[in-house]
Design a protein around this nucleic acid. Structure first.
Length: 173
DNA sequence: AAAGGGCTCAACCGCAAGGAC
DNA sequence: GGTCCTTGCGGTTGAGCCCTT
């Protein structure tokens, strides 16, 4: 049995969103704000599941989205953050105003990964490919994320090192 | 000009975490 | 304290676009 499905599949649309659906979603959220995604589709008159509405809003319809090409600075920041955080796309997105986790994830997988590989750099560690095997034994990625603080820092620093890479990696924008 | 292959990115799926009851 | 429900996240998929032959 397990969990109940997030929506009744027989009564929901799937696939690409139509313009009308977008407009309905925007109109509803503009009027009522982001509330309960579960009940939103019904309230907004959409034949979509809440999950789908949330995704559409966050990744595409939100007014504060930047869209368009990533800048060099953003490239560098993403690479740096990925080295520190790994595939924590939502955390990385939290450091890049106007960008979504999905967008960054796609950009990483399609552009940055290849870019680094073509330079002979291991995307996961940013070490030259012929050194990564040695590196992995000493410094598994997992340890890194323990030293990271979330985007909205709490004032009380636990006894962890903040981003300490010294140089320009003060990641706060 | 057409066909095939590769690439991009919006959207879906399943799982886990957190909160409410 | 346990169970159920909702939200959020990361991985994956596939339709459409673009480039090459």
């Amino acid at each position: 049995m397990g969990r109940s499905p997030c929506c009744e599949k027989g009564h929901t649309n799937k696939g690409a969103w139509s313009k009308e659906e977008d407009e309905r979603l925007i109109a509803y959220i503009t009027a009522h704000g982001e509330g309960c995604w579960r009940s939103l589709p019904k309230a907004a008159g959409l034949l979509r599941c809440g999950k789908s509405c949330r995704l559409r809003w966050i990744n595409y319809l939100r007014p504060d989205l930047k869209r368009g090409n990533f800048t060099q600075q953003e490239d560098q920041l993403i690479i740096k953050l990925h080295t520190l955080l790994g595939n924590k796309w939502s955390l990385i997105a939290g450091r890049l105003p106007g960008r979504t986790d999905n967008e960054i994830k796609n950009y990483w997988n399609t552009h940055l990964r290849k870019k680094l590989l073509s330079r002979g750099i291991d995307p996961a560690t940013q070490m030259p490919l012929n050194q990564t095997s040695q590196q992995e034994e000493r410094c598994p990625d997992l340890n890194l994320e323990l030293t990271i603080s979330p985007p909205h820092d709490h004032p009380h620093q636990q006894q962890q090192q903040p981003f300490s890479s010294g140089t320009s990696s003060t990641v706060t924008s």
